[in-house]
Amino acid sequence: MNYFEGLEFFLFLLIVLCGGFVLNFFGKKKEVYILAISLIFAGTIYGQSKKMVVYLVAFIIYQYLLVMLSNRLEKKWLKTLSLLSVVPLVINKIFAITSLHLMAFIGISYMSFKTIQIMIEISDGIIKEKYSFLDYLQFLLFFPTVSSGPIDRSRRFFDDIKTIMPREAYLELAGTGVYRVVLGLLYKIMFSTYVYQMLSALKNTGTLTYSVKYMYLYTLYLFFDFAGYSLMAVGTSNILGVQTPMNFNKPFLSIDIKDFWTRWHITLSTWLRDFVFSRVLMNAMKKKLFKSRLQNASFAYMVNMCVMGFWHGLSISYVIYGVYHGFLMAGFEWYQKKSKFYKKNKNKTWYKLTSWFVTMHLVFIGFFIFSGEPLKLIMSILKR
């Protein structure tokens, strides 16, 4: 069994959601119930591999100790603690490309970012209360979002978990949740499966025509698969009375690359904006790494998107994908600030349509890189 996969999971999920609905409908506290269910899911899914259980338990204890230290140590220790927090993730990514698979367990990327968020906000004085071990466990193992997000924020999450919603407001949220779960199932089971079958049926001819077809189909598959999972995760959270943030907002209507990253994998891009981009930019301006704010911002975009690429993995395709989007974001920043043509035409309909078309194809090329298919094509050409 795995999260949001297989008949066994969904049958158990149905029972769990019925229990959650009853608790919320009658205005009862839900945090103990949700923690218990999350632990049952984790025990069942992670328990399929002894190594995975050992890695998970070691990771949770290690990270919680770092959170406790961030409560006690001065702010100057934040960088050290953050680096220590990301060590298990780095080990995971390094050994993911080998047969050893050290620190390999479901959700390590998302759990790492959740932990770093807590430590940074404690250091910034935004989080003033001390989280107990059970609180931390609740946040980390909240079962709808363990495997593939969305990446929630701890303060928002605990507000929801500990709040008893008025019945009318809850029923509206639960209704929305049911709709999202059904739509997510449609995306993931029907649409993504259909597109994947078309993708699998493509014959690798090594031509431009094949590459273009693969690029479009892979983008559609990636969207329906990931957006479908995210919708089910958010919908499940809603039925439990938790308003987990949405991860997608009509990304194929984006009119520029910045607009795209406010619509695609929203919780990841906002996490990176808040905890990587803004801090790199402030640090670069403080140390006067470059002469102008625009140059500092371009540097911050490059770092931000490279971190995004490495977060996905250390394969060449992911690294190039991050660098590619770094150049796109930095380039568009320059274009926005320096181009008179942009300032003169940005609100005109023809310009928006042209910008949309160009943006979408830049995004499609990015996903083509992400898929790893270009490297396969290059290798096949070299072999010939």
Rank of each mutant, 00 (worst) to 15 (best):
L183I: 15
L183V: 15
L186R: 00
L186H: 00
L186D: 00
I189V: 10
M190K: 00
F191P: 08
Y194H: 01
Y194R: 00
V195M: 09
V195A: 04
Y196H: 10
Y196S: 14
Y196M: 12
Y196E: 13
Q197D: 04
L199H: 07
S200L: 04
S200N: 09
S200Y: 03
S200K: 03
L202A: 02
L202R: 00
L202S: 03
N204C: 05
T205C: 09
T207H: 10
T207I: 09
L208G: 05
Y210W: 09
Y210K: 12
S211M: 15
S211W: 11
S211I: 13
V212C: 10
V212D: 06
V212S: 09
K213P: 04
K213S: 12
K213L: 13
Y214I: 05
M215P: 05
M215G: 10
M215R: 07
Y216S: 07
L217P: 11
L217K: 04
L217T: 06
L220M: 15
L220W: 14
Y221D: 05
Y221V: 02
L222W: 14
L222M: 14
F223G: 01
F223E: 04
F223L: 09
D225H: 03
G228I: 00
Y229W: 05
Y229Q: 07
M232T: 05
M232S: 03
V234S: 12
G235R: 06
G235W: 13
S237D: 11
S237I: 09
N238E: 15
N238M: 15
I239S: 13
L240C: 11
L240Y: 14
G241P: 15
V242Y: 02
V242F: 03
V242A: 05
V242T: 06
V242R: 02
Q243E: 13
T244F: 12
M246D: 14
F248W: 10
K250D: 15
P251T: 14
P251H: 15
P251D: 14
F252R: 11
L253K: 12
S254Q: 04
S254T: 09
I255N: 01
I255F: 01
D256T: 03
W261K: 07
W261C: 08
R263Y: 10
R263A: 08
H265V: 10
I266G: 03
T267E: 07
T267F: 09
L268R: 09
L272Y: 04
R273Y: 11
R273P: 09
F275W: 06
V276G: 08
V276L: 06
F277H: 15
F277E: 06
R279I: 07
R279W: 02
R279S: 07
R279G: 07
V280H: 12
M282R: 08
M282P: 00
N283F: 11
A284F: 10
A284D: 08
A284I: 02
A284E: 05
M285C: 12
K286V: 00
K286H: 03
L289V: 02
F290W: 09
F290N: 08
S292N: 12
R293T: 07
L294I: 11
Q295G: 05
N296V: 01
N296A: 11
N296Y: 06
A297Y: 01
A297D: 01
A297C: 02
